[in-house]
Amino acid sequence: MYSLPQSYNQTSKCKRCISSNAYDSISYWEDFSKPKIVWGNLNLTPNYALVENNSFINAPSSMIVPASKYLLAILNSKIADFYIKLLGVTRNGGYFEYKPMFIEQLPIPQLKIENKELAQIERLIDNNNYTEIEYIVYNLYGLTQDEINYINSL
């Protein structure tokens, strides 16, 4: 397992720097132009999204750079959401605050470059087949059928 990249940032920090003309002193400035995984802070369910090159978000949003479809699949999985929600508090109406401090604690299964699951996950994401992705992710974490049934029952 490995940790998520430490390049979580808030676009609000960027806005503050742009307005003060100090943006060229920010070490992560170039990350905003790279592909990234972003998410809203307050959601009922995980809603991580892949943002392509040279695309920007005009609202405060955490981000992970570099982006990968593999990481996107893990983050949007039911097992990841279960784990992350153990770390924080659910707010009124069932909303959970997906803070970077919770997200970065998620253990990510490390794959070898030639791993067949990686290519399969990328293909399934391209085809929006999230049910099949869930079962691949369960397998990557080594869940038993009882554990899978429990997570699916939530």
Results as ranks from 00 to 15, higher is better:
Cys14Gly: 10
Val38Trp: 03
Ser33Glu: 09
Asp24Ser: 12
Tyr48Thr: 00
Glu30Val: 03
Val51Asn: 04
Trp39Lys: 01
Leu50Gln: 03
Ser25Gly: 10
Asn21Lys: 15
Thr45Phe: 11
Arg16Val: 10
Cys17Lys: 15
Asn54Asp: 15
Asn54Ser: 13
Thr11Ser: 14
Phe56Asp: 10
Glu52Val: 02
Lys15Met: 09
Asp24Ala: 06
Trp29Ile: 08
Phe56Gly: 06
Lys36Phe: 04
Val51Cys: 06
Ile18Cys: 10
Phe32Met: 08
Arg16Ser: 13
Thr11Leu: 13
Ile26His: 01
Leu44Val: 04
Pro35Asp: 01
Tyr48Trp: 13
Ala49Val: 13
Tyr28Ala: 01
Trp39Ala: 01
Ser25Lys: 10
Leu44Tyr: 07
Asn54Gly: 08
Gln6Thr: 15
Asn9Lys: 15
Lys13Gln: 13
Lys13Asn: 14
Val51Ala: 07
Trp29Ala: 07
Ser33Asn: 12
Tyr8Cys: 05
Glu30Lys: 14
Lys34Ile: 00
Pro5Lys: 00
Cys17His: 11
Pro46Phe: 01
Pro5Leu: 11
Asp24Ile: 02
Tyr23Asp: 08
Gln6Ala: 14
Ser55Asn: 14
Tyr8His: 15
Tyr48Lys: 00
Tyr8Ile: 00
Tyr8Gly: 08
Leu44Gln: 08
Asp24Cys: 06
Thr11Phe: 14
Asn53Val: 01
Lys36Ile: 10
Ile26Trp: 06
Asn21Asp: 15
Lys36Leu: 07
Leu50Ser: 05
Leu50Phe: 15
Asp31Leu: 03
Ser27Leu: 12
Glu52Leu: 11
Asn41Ala: 01
Ser20Arg: 10
Ala49Thr: 12
Val51Gly: 02
Ser55Lys: 15
Tyr28Glu: 10
Lys13Gly: 09
Asn21Cys: 12
Tyr48Arg: 01
Pro35Tyr: 00
Glu52Cys: 06
Pro5Asn: 05
Ser33Met: 04
Ser25Ala: 07
Ser7Phe: 08
Asp31Met: 03
Lys36Tyr: 01
Cys14Pro: 00
Tyr23Lys: 09
Gln10Asn: 13
Thr45Glu: 05
Ser33His: 08
Gly40Asp: 03
Ile26Leu: 14
Ser33Cys: 05
Ile26Asn: 01
Gln6Ser: 15
Pro46Gly: 03
Val38Gly: 03
Val38Arg: 07
Pro5Gly: 05
